[in-house]
């Protein structure tokens, strides 16, 4: 009994340490974003400033044409459009493909699957210039549609992998029962498999969203104007040769991190069940 208590204490202490390690850097970023620039560059550092400065958030949310606010707000919108578009397309395409991998028997099944997974190993840089020319020739350069298009190619293999593994854990009998009643395969997929695969689907949505929101190299090369530039590119530009201040980068960073944070927090409980049932089990 005593040993159990000691163990439990130890585990709780360790959990506290981990939690602090996770939160401290972000806490500093939050503080920096509301510390006046003049205080921020003072040594020794005043962790909690005597006055708070919310002007960076004001700049970002309401700043006029001459501030970073305009670019930032445009980037926020672009990132949202690209991420949601990528998730939607990847999920639809991925569900269909994953079903084929999990349930159907066809020639080259394994080879095709391996091919999909192998694309993940290719460095993005190897496709940049040809893709740039393709996007340009079909008029999708510097558009959110074009970026969504190329991001899907990164996200779909992931979705296929997670979902096909998950679909395989759903008893085929369920589906067969429905099909005896005259439902088509697609009907069974929609009415039987998808509801049963909810954790896997949520896990896939979370992965897809985080991947799409995080994508940098394609956005860096394929977008340049406010019409399509995404947040990672906008933030990397804050920190260039003519930066303003770390507080502004921090404020922008926090806002840019909020959507994926919300998605991650909402969906995290499905990740474990979504993955546990499929992807990581032998």
């Amino acid at each position: 009994m005593k040993r159990a208590t000691r163990n439990s204490l130890l585990i709780h202490v360790a959990a506290w340490i981990v939690a602090i390690a996770c939160l401290a850097p972000i806490g500093y970023m939050v503080l920096a974003s509301i510390t006046p620039q003049r205080v921020l560059i003072t040594t020794p550092l005043q962790w909690i400033p005597s006055t708070f400065d919310f002007s960076r958030y004001a700049t970002i949310f309401a700043g006029g044409a001459d501030s970073v606010g305009t670019t930032f707000r445009a980037a926020m919108l672009n990132s949202t459009v690209v991420a949601i578009g990528t998730v939607a397309i990847s999920m639809v395409v991925g569900i269909l493909g994953a079903y084929a991998f999990a349930r159907l028997r066809f020639r080259f099944r394994r080879a095709i699957l391996v091919l999909f997974l192998a694309t993940y190993m290719l460095p993005q840089i190897a496709t940049l210039i040809p893709l740039y020319l393709i996007l340009n020739s079909i008029g999708l350069l510097d558009t959110t549609a074009g970026l969504t298009f190329v991001d899907c190619a990164l996200v779909i293999p992931f979705v296929l992998w997670i979902l096909s593994n998950y679909f395989m854990t759903i008893p085929e009998e369920l589906e067969e029962a429905a099909r005896v009643d005259g439902t088509t395969r697609m009907g069974a997929l929609w009415y039987v498999v998808l509801p049963a695969a909810r954790p896997g689907i949520f896990a896939a949505i979370m992965f897809a969203f985080l991947l799409a929101w995080d994508e940098f190299m394609y956005a860096l090369i394929f977008t340049s104007s406010d019409a399509s530039k995404t947040l990672p590119v906008a933030i990397s530009e804050f920190a260039g040769r003519y930066t303003t201040d770390f507080g502004l980068v921090a404020a922008g960073g926090i806002i840019a991190a909020l959507p994926p944070l919300i998605v991650a927090i909402i969906f995290q409980r499905y990740v474990v069940s979504g993955m546990a049932a499929g992807a990581v089990k032998g």
Binding site: V18, A19, C22, L23, P25, I26, Y28, M29, L210, W213, D214, F216, L231, P232, I235, S236, F238, A239, V249, A250, G253, I254, A256, A257, P260, L261, V263, A264, I265, Q268
Partner: peptide, 16 residues
């Protein structure tokens, strides 16, 4: 709490 660092975009993480 543990899921938070994972959700921070790489570029924001780098800047931070």
């Amino acid at each position: 709490i543990v899921v938070i660092p994972w959700a921070i975009p790489t570029i924001v993480n780098a800047a931070m």
